[in-house]
Every structure is written in structure tokens, then in C-alpha cells.
Design a protein around this nucleic acid. Structure first.
Lengths: 340, 340
DNA sequence: GACGCTACGGAAAAGCTTTTCCTAAGTCAA
DNA sequence: TTGACTTAGGAAAAGCTTTTCCGTAGCGTC
């Protein structure tokens, strides 16, 4: 392990003082052009890289932030963290990743370490959008943004997906394709996301002068198995087969597609499907490939990162919930020309 | 944004010098018990948290490391990074996450930032195990470990999954269950992982005095579609249906299972399946649920983290490739009692 | 030649902590 | 009472950088 080159090494080699090196490299003070060029050449030759820790000590800003995730293993985490990392690294800020893992003791340890490292700010992420972060953010003394998580703290800033708007758009899309008897098969009702997606579905129906068919708003697990069960219920139901189904997630939709196909239903001919998540490994592999609402999680992460940056820079940011618009990804399951 | 409490604030409040505060809090030097208790009480009351940056400057170690991932969005990344993070945070080391995204310019920027922040070490991860990191690690001057990636650099340390051993175990398991005509349906031959899994399958067959049935070693994409195609080829093949199939991934196996079921084949009765990845969203949802090789990626990450820690602490670590043993996760597809 | 102004670079202070060296006070033994 | 030793705490230096203040030299003008 090599000792990094310090400003003193450069000063000695260049035959000037350390303040001259600093000024030459930073273009500050008054350093003659010849001296400046000479110092820069020496610094480059020696591979001098200023010690960021020392700089941070002096400038009062570390150009690092923490991501404290409550679910580092969850599939939503990847695009969110990816979006955060990209937005911040593009702005010279490095990102610590910490996994709290639903463990308050671990969370405390991470916070202690991050605060000791004088991070400029913190982003909290969770597994589900209705997660209430158990954290006194005011006591941290640094800017905090919640991404895919909420907070009971006054003045909190939360960046969330637009579940209601996404379901509204997806249902509108089906209506625009001429579908009239549209069912909704959601996840667990205990999830706010389930309820918001249902609300968006209902809003679109209402606006079109339609109503949900009888017994066609169903709820179950976030699983393919529930999707297959729901398919059987809709095939066997007294109300007749819906001509379209809004599924609460790609997994449910995949089960629904398998169940309908095995029940002899042609998709999207007899029944069209749309769903949520744009979880590619599922959505693209389902037969037919799923038209699905992409919650734009990478963009959500990027907005969280940039919002935190604004806070760090002392800009005014309006507190509260901000919802990132989703995108409808068209594949075959809805029956419109495949645009993917 | 509140200014953090410094050691000077504590010294002033406690009526002692800053060196006394440092000694009292660290249990160094000679500080009387009464003075020590008083200083600690004041420090706690003020919420003093030593500035880690200043400490790092003095002690020459930052207790932070970098993870430079070449695929932050890939599904292998989650458990690897999770394992790294957990192992290191349990040892007081914080983890920077950086996404190089197959972009040498971005990679350079990240490295510059990390080296300036005087990280203690670096872990490189990639999307595939045969990725050769394009990096002169000797020039970094800090310890480096590769996790799920390789390096042409002499003395490099690479932690990889045991693809060959996992396929060997899975195939041995099928043989132990009495299967005799065992096919192999892998991913792209351009992947080292495909070739190693095939080698493990062949080793187990050879050891049992068996041979691959004719036309039963097939290769295609990492996709369900390829799995369905392969199912048709095996059903229609002249060699007769194999009584077991080793699939190169869960995705391939899922397509295989769908293809076989739709071709009227009973699984695991007529044909048993094993596969690779233990990608839960696929493996558990496949009908029948997949017996699959878990490459133990979280453990791989943990070992990478602990290996880096040993390097940082100046311990002797043998260079080269280290393979983390996999685990065979038993579900229904192999035909043995469901132990999951 | 004297005075004033500006460019230039060095020394010192500052940011925050830890460690070392020094000094004073207290205690004990002769 | 004196000398030796130990405890206790403060001042200064160190880690690495940036910034400010100061002094000197050079140049131009009167």
C-alpha cells in the first residue's frame, strides 16, 4: 500500500510553498503563469490527488451522502438506488449504501457512522410506499429525502410513484381500445399501492361512464398463484368473462395469463390484460407479453437525489409528497399494435 | 442545518482543554476519574460525535471502501452488494456504491472520487463471471478484490460462484434419485458459466458411469423462450424423452417446464428438472417449483468484503480465484420430497 | 530619488481530532 | 526538609488542505 502524494511532496519537488501549490492548482490568489505551469506539471507528474478528507474538513461539506435502505434485497431497490447514484455522481457526490434491514439497532449504527462521516444529506428508501420511516429526521441536523417511503415527520419530503395515475392511464388505454367490461385484480388491500391503483382504475371507468362489472374487483397476494386463482374465478363467475383486466402487478398478471390460456381464453382477443411494474423478467416472458405500467423507479431515484442536492445547496424545496409520473409500456397483452 | 458539536465545544463547556476531552473519551493518557466522568457527561449532553474525517486524517485510515459495479441494475448485484455491505458494516466500515455502467469515463471519475476520499480498499463487481475488469489495479495503491468478476492483473483476488460444483451436485442429486437419461439445456456457450455448468453435469454423469444421451446437450439464450424451444426439441427428438434435465438457469427451466407441461409431459414423474440461480420470483412460481442451485451470492459478497478487510489490515491473502460453494435448494421439480 | 500601487509568493492560521512532551502538584521515604 | 517518583492536565505539534495577511520587489509617475 502506497502512501498517497501530499501537497507537501509537490511543494518540495516544485520548490515552492504549500500555499503556492494550493493556489496554483486551484487558480486562486496571485501566482505567476510560469510558476503555475511548473507546479501543475510537477503535481501531474507525481500523480497528486488532493486529500478530499482534508478538503472536506476545511470547506465544511463532504460531497458524500447516505442511502439508508430498509430493503436492500427488494427488487424495487435496484432502479431507485441506481437512479440516486447516477444523479448524485453526475454532480460530484459519492453515495454510501447502508442496509437497515428492518432492524432499529442496525439503523442506529449506520446513522452514527454516517453522521460521524459528516455526510451532506440522507435518502431513506423502503420496500413499500406506505412504509413510515421510524426516524426523527429533525434530530439529524442534515437534509433528508424519502424515496419510495413516507414519513410522519412534519416538513418531510417524500418521492413516490404515481400508482393512481398509472392505473388511470392503463384503464383509459383499455377503454380507448374499446374495452367495456373491465375487471380489477389487485394485491393485498393492506398495501396503499393496491388501494391507489384501484382508485385510478375506478376514476377512469367513472370518467368514461362505465362501472366495474359485478364481482370483478378482486384482491389477493402479490403472486402468480393468486393470478391463476383469480382467472378461474372470472372464468367461472356469473357476470361473464370481462373483456379486459387491470392486474395489480406483473406477477398477478402472469398468473392471470397462464390461467386464462389454460382455461381456453384467447388473449388479447377475448380478454386484454394490463398490469403494473414493468418487471422485465416477468412482463416480457409472459404470454402474451404484458402491457404494463412502469413506475419509473429510476427516475424516482434521480429526483430524490437531485432534491437532496437542492436541500444541501440551501435551495428552497417544498415539503410533502411528490409523485413521479409512470409510463405505460405497450406490449401485446392489451391488444393494441406492439410498440415495444 | 445545524453545525455539529466539536471537541472544542465540549472542552469549553467542561472547562478543560481539548486534549483532555480527547483523552477522557478515548481512555488514553492520564485523566482522573472525576474529570473523565465529567467530560463524558458533558459530551453526551451536547451530543458530541467526533468528526470521522478529522480522525481519518490523523489515523491514516478512513474506514470506508468502494464498490465499483459494472452492472448496478443486474439481478446478481443485489445479493452480492448486500453481502458485502453487511460484512463490512458489521466491521465498522462504510461502503460507497458506484455504478461504472460499462463506461470507462464514468469508471475513471468514480475511481478519482474514491481515491480522493482515501478509501481503504475497493471491490469490483460485474454482470458475468467471465468479465475481465479493465483496470490497472496495481496503480491504485490500495487493496482490491473482485467479486463475480475476474482480472488479468497478476496477484488479483477473485471471488466467484462454483458453477461447476453446483451443476455436479445437481446432477448427482438426479442420479441419486434414479434418473438415468439426463439432458443438459444451457445458456449461451459464450458464457464461461454455461461451460462450467456443462462440465459439472458431465463430471457427475461420468462418475456414475453414465453418458449424456444423444442430442441432449443444447445451448441457447438465457430465456424462457429458449426453454420452451428446447422442450419441443427434446419431446420431438429421436433419442426419446430424457427422464431428467439440467437447465442452465431458472428462466430456461421455467420455459422448459411450461413447454413440457403443454406437451403433455408429467413433471417430475416422467421428467425431472433442476436448474441454476434460485431466482425466487421464477423458481418458486414455476410449476412444479424448481429444484435449483443457489450460487450463494450473498455469501460471495460477504467473503469479498471480509477478504478486502484482511487485505486492509495487512493480513496475508493468497491471490487467485476462490469459488464459493453453492447450495442445492430442493423444491418439487426434481421429484424428491419437498424439503423447502 | 521618493512615493504609491500591484503582483507575487511565503508564513501563519484555520478546519477537527489525537498524541507527545512538559510542568506542576502531590505523595512517600529517607 | 529534601529528593524521587507518579499522576494529572495543558500546550504544542501533527495529519492535509485552503485562505488570509504580510512583506518584498518591480514598475510607473511625479
Amino acid at each position: 500500500m502506497r502512501t498517497p502524494v501530499t501537497i507537501r511532496n509537490v511543494a518540495t519537488e516544485a520548490g515552492v510553498s504549500i500555499s503556492t501549490v494550493s493556489k496554483a492548482l486551484n487558480g486562486t490568489g496571485h501566482i505567476g503563469a510560469k510558476t503555475r505551469e511548473h507546479v501543475i506539471a510537477v503535481a501531474n507528474r507525481l500523480g497528486f490527488r488532493p486529500n478530499d478528507l482534508a478538503q472536506s474538513l476545511h470547506r465544511g461539506r463532504s460531497f458524500s451522502v447516505g442511502i439508508l435502505s430498509n430493503d436492500i434485497y427488494g427488487r424495487f431497490t435496484l432502479p431507485i438506488v441506481g437512479g440516486i447514484e447516477e444523479a448524485l455522481s453526475d454532480n460530484r457526490v459519492s453515495v454510501f449504501l447502508c442496509n437497515a434491514a428492518d432492524d432499529l439497532e442496525r439503523q442506529k449504527r449506520h446513522l452514527d457512522a454516517l453522521l460521524a462521516k459528516r455526510i451532506d444529506g440522507l435518502i431513506l428508501t423502503a420496500r413499500r410506499t406506505d412504509y413510515l420511516a421510524p426516524l426523527d429526521i429533525a434530530a439529524l441536523g442534515i437534509p433528508v429525502v424519502h424515496a419510495y417511503a413516507q414519513s410522519a415527520a412534519p416538513g418531510a419530503i417524500c418521492i413516490l410513484p404515481d400508482d393512481e395515475g398509472g392505473a388511470y392511464d392503463a384503464t383509459r388505454h383499455l377503454i380507448a381500445l374499446g374495452r367495456k367490461r373491465i375487471a380489477h385484480v389487485g394485491g393485498p388491500q393492506s398495501f396503499e399501492a393496491t388501494r391507489l391503483r384501484q382508485a385510478g382504475y375506478r376514476a377512469a371507468l367513472k370518467e368514461a361512464g362505465l362501472a366495474p362489472p359485478p364481482d370483478s374487483e378482486l384482491f389477493g397476494a402479490w403472486s402468480e398463484e393468486w393470478g391463476r386463482d383469480a382467472a378461474r374465478r372470472l372464468i367461472d363467475g356469473k357476470a361473464g368473462l370481462p373483456d379486459a383486466i387491470v392486474c395489480g402487478s406483473d406477477q398477478i398478471a402472469r398468473g392471470m395469463a397462464d390461467g386464462l390460456r389454460e382455461g381456453g381464453i384467447d388473449m388479447p382477443g377475448q380478454t386484454a390484460l394490463v398490469s403494473f411494474d414493468n418487471w422485465d423478467v416477468i412482463a416480457a416472458a409472459t404470454r402474451p407479453a404484458l402491457t404494463t405500467v412502469d413506475p419509473n423507479l429510476k427516475e424516482l431515484g434521480a429526483q430524490a437525489g437531485l432534491t437532496l442536492l437542492s436541500l444541501i445547496e440551501g435551495k428552497d424545496v417544498k415539503p410533502g409528497i411528490r409523485r413521479v409520473p409512470s409510463k405505460l409500456i405497450i406490449r401485446r397483452s392489451c391488444g393494441s399494435p406492439d410498440r415495444s
